[in-house]
Design a protein around this nucleic acid. Sequence first.
DNA 1: GTGAAAGCGCTAACAA
DNA 2: TTGTTAGCGCTTTCAC
Lengths: 337, 337
Amino acid sequence: MKRPVTIKDVAKQAGVSISTVSRVINNSKPVTDEVKQKVLKVIKKTGYIPNPLARSLVTKKSQLIGVIVPEVSDYIVNEMLNGIEEVAKMYDYEILLANTYSDKEQELKSINLLRAKQVEGILMISPNIDKEQVEYLNNCLIPTTYISKNAKEFDVYTVSIDNEQATYDMTKYLINKGHKNILFLIDNDKEDIFAKEKFSGYKKALYESGLSLDENLIKYLTDSYYEDGYDIVKSILEKDNNFDSIFATSDELAIGAMNACFDLGYDVPKDISVAGFDGIKISRMYRPKLTTVDQPLYDIGAVAIRMIIKLINQEALKEKRVELPHTIKERESVLER
Amino acid sequence: MKRPVTIKDVAKQAGVSISTVSRVINNSKPVTDEVKQKVLKVIKKTGYIPNPLARSLVTKKSQLIGVIVPEVSDYIVNEMLNGIEEVAKMYDYEILLANTYSDKEQELKSINLLRAKQVEGILMISPNIDKEQVEYLNNCLIPTTYISKNAKEFDVYTVSIDNEQATYDMTKYLINKGHKNILFLIDNDKEDIFAKEKFSGYKKALYESGLSLDENLIKYLTDSYYEDGYDIVKSILEKDNNFDSIFATSDELAIGAMNACFDLGYDVPKDISVAGFDGIKISRMYRPKLTTVDQPLYDIGAVAIRMIIKLINQEALKEKRVELPHTIKERESVLER
DNA sequence: GTGAAAGCGCTAACAA
DNA sequence: TTGTTAGCGCTTTCAC
């Protein structure tokens, strides 16, 4: 492996001091145009690339942002990652990714690892964060933004949609389509703020429409993979069928739900309407196409990373929490009743 | 932001030289147990984390591997990424990700960017690589492994499955199920080695079974998103229906194909059987569950990154190309005819 | 406008 | 076994 060319080499070949070379590559101080051109020529000729390691060592800036995710392959995370990547690149930041499989201990490890790598900021994507974590991260004094179901419970920088309103909107939509008994699948524990918000939106829509709430129709799921949606709907359907539609608060759950319906001989949407939440790509690929609450996943990622960059640059942020608009995507899985 | 504690601070507090501290954190040279304990205690007390930047600067090892991907959110890439992440972590390497959107220019840019960041190796995931690229990367003298449809055309380190055999196996499977007219959707240009391999596997299975090849049943697609599968099958089905099954060389394509069948009033698998290729998660989520060639995506990623690490450590590699086994996943989308 | 020199935090000879 | 020192590639005072 040939030795890479350094600033010294450039300086020598251009017949100037290394400070001068540094000045031209950073545009940090005025340099005579003549000298500048000379240096530039040598740089081009030698293919010199400044070593960011050395640079970071002195400037204390790594141009690295750590992104902690539960799983790269999670569909939601995934679509966010596109926005994150894009914006980071725009501001010349690189992304250091850390998978945690939603394991608290691994999350802590990842934080330390990223810190060690001198990241300038951290984007924490986690289903649920806890106090210990937030405090730890606060103590690190490293700009952090959260994308998490329960981030609202803490005084932290976070971006999301208005979950209560979104749930309200979809429930209302379902009701307007003539559905009165909506099986509500919530992808969280009952005590979580996230579950509460969604429940609240659901309840509000029901009451406003003069419908009463049937507690048996509310199901809390800890995991929200499609298998979980499948299992619960199947087990319910095997006993009785006292609902005309299903509203699942994640697309994966909704797809699992639809699968269960099909397997037990029900047609979606003819017999049972199904609505989802998220708007991931599969919701369009599946047949029937899933009617769902569309979250601006790309934008959520983009905004979150932008916040971090602003934080790093000490720019003023209007608010700690930003809420992005959602939309109801009317597709094929919900039928007028 | 408080100044992070450095090796100097530790040395001073422990009353030893910085070299001694360095020795205990690296276990590089023997240190009296007594001294060691003293240093360790100070490290724990101060929460000292060695600065890998400084370390890398002198050792020339960044513990970073660059992974160039067409798109983080691509389902295939995605499942590979899990394996990549896992193995990298196992060997204490971090992953630096670069999205290229399959753009050649962007790929070149990414290579330079990763080089600048001092990555020790590069994993290049790209639908198709070209000579210029390979040569450029070779010139960088940086260990590189490729995951690419046409990597076989070059003398490079690469991991894949045996595409010809896999295609053969699935075609054979279809034939054994009584299908004689198999619409064959290839996700590549006709001239690509990848397309040739798959075509060859298809042809071989046909001939072996005494079936003749109908050129009209072979379709080459440049893009292989589900929309592409949808469009082509729809346009064919609108004219005539001279096939009893579809074999698409990507799951997305296959799902698009199934959607087209449904939309035109055909049932899958009753009227038309459909088989895919890849074995991504959605192939299980969709109904009917897709019968497909299962690629060990996780393993492909894992092996590729392992190769790079071996290359970095100058360990001997048995072969430049490794081929992993595939399996035929029998599910619901193919019916005996 | 330019150069010399110090120093970022660390490792690795080299001495002791 | 331990400490001293040079130096990794760069930026940034501080003189000139």
